[in-house]
């Protein structure tokens, strides 16, 4: 299994744990990820608010155009990147007018994209290409006894509703956690927005949403929250203390990338498990599983 890999800006900063664990897990599962050369920021959901959808999608498409020369489908580990890349990709595939116009813009840098690739979230690749059976086979240290809230977040499943999983109550993350031996928490907030893009300008929105997510996860018996999304991870991890301060709560629930838990269950290196980047410490919750 070979893919073009789009790491996204956060992989080099706030979400290093994501990058490390994806790398480790991909290797363990024989998934070859080849980084798109000289990739650029996708613009997230923010750029279009300044320059408009079209410009944003063209900026995103630059990455697809580069990847297309290799002919490998594009995988990303970031939900926000996934959304912008996948939506742009769909537009290229379906909207002829858009494709022509976008290629006119891409041509300014000598690029062109024909819409021949698929854009995938890494979670999607694990579930649908690798398969849960193979994942289960790789488990060395079953996460038996661990209850995990599979927080898929919003953009992974809602950008293209139903194309990957149910947009409101996705189940694949739970199935994956079960394949690792863990128990999936009853967690109705699994795909609610955490408010990420408002973190800086309207922090209260984020704290409020975070509070609801923690409350739901804890009520479902979760000891750990996992997510495929760097924004979600950052918000829920770094701002957990502020939530506690604002609401007088004492949540202390580690928030990990799902790939980190896979790394634990696969018995991969501590570097692949990448716990050191966590602000809310996962060591206590995972002491009996992590080596």
């Amino acid at each position: 299994m070979r893919y073009s890999y789009y790491p996204g800006c956060s992989s080099e900063a706030t979400a290093k744990a994501n990058a490390h664990s994806i790398e480790g897990v991909a290797k363990a599962l024989d998934v070859q990820l080849e980084e798109i050369p000289d990739w650029n920021c996708c613009g997230a959901s923010v750029a279009s608010g300044v320059v408009g959808d079209f410009t944003q999608l063209v900026v995103t498409a630059r990455n697809l155009a580069i990847a297309e020369t290799k002919g490998l489908d594009v995988v990303t580990g970031c939900s926000s990147c996934y959304m912008t890349l996948a939506v742009a990709n769909k537009k290229f595939k379906q909207d002829e007018h858009f494709r022509a116009k976008a290629n006119e813009a891409l041509a300014a840098a000598g690029l062109n994209y024909n819409g021949t690739l698929q854009v995938r979230q890494f979670l999607d690749v694990i579930i649908n290409d690798v398969g849960l059976d193979k994942v289960a086979q790789k488990v060395k240290k079953s996460l038996d006894g661990l209850t995990v809230a599979g927080y898929v977040g919003c953009q992974t499943v809602r950008a293209l509703p139903f194309e990957f999983d149910d947009p409101e109550q996705p189940v694949f993350m739970d199935r994956l956690m079960e394949a690792l031996g863990a128990t999936a928490a009853d967690f109705p907030m699994r795909a609610r927005c955490c408010g990420s893009s408002s973190t800086i300008p309207a922090r209260d929105i984020v704290l409020d949403l975070g509070y609801k997510i923690f409350e739901s996860a804890v009520a479902g018996g979760a000891q750990v929250i996992v997510t495929p999304c760097p924004m979600c991870q950052l918000n829920l991890d770094a701002y957990q203390s502020l939530v506690n301060r604002k609401y007088g709560t004492n949540f202390n629930i580690p928030v990990l990338f799902f790939t980190q838990l896979m790394a634990v269950a696969f018995g991969l290196s501590l570097e692949d498990q990448a716990f050191k980047y966590s602000i809310v410490s996962p060591y206590e919750a995972l002491v009996q599983y992590s080596k």
């Binding site: 000289d38 006119e104 602000i279």
Partner: peptide
């Protein structure tokens, strides 16, 4: 998780800017 120095500019920044202005 918070590098104090910015990442390197992409090599194709010039091209990207052209794409943006064309778009």
């Amino acid at each position: 998780r918070m590098p104090l120095l910015p990442p390197k500019k992409i090599k194709g920044l010039g091209g990207l800017k052209k794409i943006i202005s064309k778009a």
